[in-house]
Design a protein around this nucleic acid. Structure first.
Lengths: 201, 201
DNA sequence: ATTCCAATGTGATAAATGTCACTGAGTTTA
DNA sequence: TAAACTCAGTGACATTTATCACATTGGAAT
């Protein structure tokens, strides 16, 4: 899927490259968007938030992927409805929307790239809807940890219960209790700031 | 927004037109998709379902709009992850994906059309996530009824509590109780198979 | 090593929603 | 008109999640 991006090596020529540290906010909610971020290295999480308190992670962006929300917002001079935060040290190139239009019209590969990313994101959004609509928190938590593991490439996840609560939009205590239960079932091992998914999970 | 669709009058020449009755299923879950439905008249609701029991309405399609999920599925030879059901008597033209590709590459207006629909659908999906993640059922119910009213063009909604429960993925009793409460607050008037939104709501 | 603090563990309780059981009202059908 | 059926109203109770209060623990800082 990543290989889809046409001409990845020359990406940096099309826009400005910036490097972010874990926790940095790359795109803010309600901010107007004029250029499209494409992840070169690292990963981002894209989320929606309530009244600035609760939030909800929608999906992750990995190298070669772009934020479709930004893309559409830029295309229609709209503001971003989501925010994006770096999960780890992350390098992002921002391509101006005009350049993007040009690339898409000149090279069908770019168009295809955009459609593929759409496809992926839509499916992920559907999964999120599915999870919060139909599943209970224990299942959602496990699914979420698996996703984190996948994105970070390690089954050893560095995160606090508080943060997990934020990203799943629930209370820390709920996370703590569920994790404890999962530990008893042998699905995870717990440590301070660390959750390790066992092979059984 | 609807006017965006390029050349609406000749749409019928590009594919097969079919008419559906209220409740008919236009696109099924897990069915392979080879042609893109565009609504000519009436309206569809697009939803996701659990294990065939519970379901969840994601958004409505009105005349001139197409199902982006079908579009992406067709583009990548995938199956539909959602199902679409006619809300009322609805006329739909099915355009083969090949024809669609041709139209998009020949006429940038078509491409623009597709992107605009994407934009709209993404925002609606975000609204759904926002609602189920952050809002309580009373607020969701009211919001849902307003949407229904908007789509059908009437503040007099013909539906049973059972159906509402299905579409919001909750129990009938919950709907009944909340509606009763809303009636006491003067937000709605209730009748058998009918809910009327008052001016105050 | 002692202190301090963030992170975690856990009980008690509340709130929202889900489930069950049943009643009754309005419609349709025989 | 009388049955039969669908839809709606409602009490009682279960489950899930949220909230509050406070104890404990592991590491970092001094």
């Amino acid at each position: 899927m990543n290989q889809v991006l046409p001409d990845r090596s020359s990406l940096k020529n099309y826009g400005i490259t910036k490097t972010f540290k874990a926790g940095d906010e790359i795109v803010s909610e309600d901010a107007p968007v004029q250029s499209i971020p494409i992840v070169l290295r690292g990963s981002l999480k894209v989320m929606q938030s309530d009244d600035e308190f609760r939030e909800m992670v929608m999906y992750y962006l990995q190298p070669g992927e772009t934020c479709v929300m930004s893309f559409l917002a830029a295309l229609y001079n709209d503001t971003s409805k989501v925010k994006a935060v770096a999960e780890e040290e992350t390098e992002v190139v921002f391509i101006p929307i005009g350049k993007m239009r040009e690339l898409m019209s000149k090279d069908p590969k770019w168009l295809n790239y955009v459609f593929q990313i759409y496809h992926k994101r839509f499916e992920e959004l559907l999964d999120v809807v599915n999870a919060i609509a139909f599943k209970k928190m224990d299942e959602r938590l496990l699914q979420f940890l698996e996703k984190k593991a996948e994105v970070s490439g390690s089954r050893d996840i560095k995160i606090t219960h508080e943060q997990l609560g934020q990203e799943l939009s629930t209370a820390r205590e709920v996370i703590s209790r569920l994790l404890k239960q999962m530990e008893n079932e042998g699905l995870v091992e717990l440590g301070r700031n660390r959750i390790t998914l066992t092979s059984r999970s």
